[in-house]
Structure formats: C-alpha cells, structure tokens
C-alpha cells in the first residue's frame, strides 16, 4: 500500500490532563509555529491524517485547525491542504511573551498573598537576575 506525504508532527495528547483535546493540539502546534520549529510554508497533515496519528476524531482536529487559522497562524489553501502561515514578528513575540507574562503575574499574586511589598518583589527579581548573570 502507498504512503503519501504524511508529515508526523511532534504533538502528543494526554488523557491525564484536564485540558480538552483540541486545546492540547492548538497549544502545541501554536508553540511549534511561534518558536519557528515549523517554518512558514511548511505543509501540515490533513485533519484526517492528524486525527489518525493522534487517535482522536476529525471533529477535534478540524476545530483546532479552524482556531489556529483564525489566529492567523496557519493557512488552508482550497484543495491544496494546510500550511504554516507567515507570522509577523510582533505576533510571534506576543505569543512568546504571553506565557512568560502569565507566569510573572501568578508569581506576583503569590508574593502579594505572602505580604511582600512591590519594593521587596523588585529586589527579589533583581537578585535572581544578578545570580543568573554571575552563573552564565
């Protein structure tokens, strides 16, 4: 039997996670695209082939592709499959900064809960950065 162009993406689904399957596909594919692991123009597997590889249904993979298409990260060409879109630098940075900002926000919330002042927090961040710099 023939095998034609099956791009296997480095995506795995976890059933132990409480995140919906389409979100797991979306976030992993988004990460691969904004970090340029998948360059603009890279052909992606069809929703059917991706579903078959991951063991989920095309209902799920179609939803993930639709969402990423709306975000402008992928592009479906009529009759010619789906490719990675040319993502502008500022959007790429936004996606890369987003998760970092969220981690910082949750660290700030934790510090506040522990009663740390802004000044103490700034000092802590400066200290960590200085330690990092001296190590590298």
């Amino acid at each position: 039997m023939v095998r034609i162009g099956d791009t296997t993406l480095p995506i795995t689904l976890s059933l132990e996670a409480s995140t919906p399957l389409y979100e797991q596909i979306e976030s992993q594919l988004r990460q691969l695209i904004v970090s340029s692991v998948l360059a603009a123009g890279t052909p992606l597997p069809s929703v059917r082939m991706l579903a078959s590889n991951l063991g989920c249904s095309v209902i799920t993979t179609r939803r993930a592709y639709q969402d990423l298409e709306q975000e402008g990260l992928i592009h479906t060409l009529q009759g010619r499959g789906t490719i990675v879109a040319d993502v502008p630098e500022e959007i790429r940075l936004q996606h890369q900064h987003g998760p970092i900002e969220r981690s910082l926000q949750s660290a700030i919330a934790q510090a506040r809960a522990a009663g740390l002042s802004h000044q103490e927090l700034r000092t802590m961040l400066e200290q960590i950065l200085t330690e990092e710099e001296s190590q590298s």
């Binding site: 059933l15 132990e16 409480s18 919906p20 399957l21 989920c56 249904s57 209902i59 799920t60």
Partner: peptide, 11 residues
C-alpha cells in the same frame, strides 16, 4: 457517541 466523548475528560 462521538469517539472523543469516550476519552476526553474521562479519568
């Protein structure tokens, strides 16, 4: 049943 309803959210 949609297949993913048999796995998604099940634990």
């Amino acid at each position: 049943w949609p297949k993913d309803d048999l796995t998604e959210g099940w634990q």
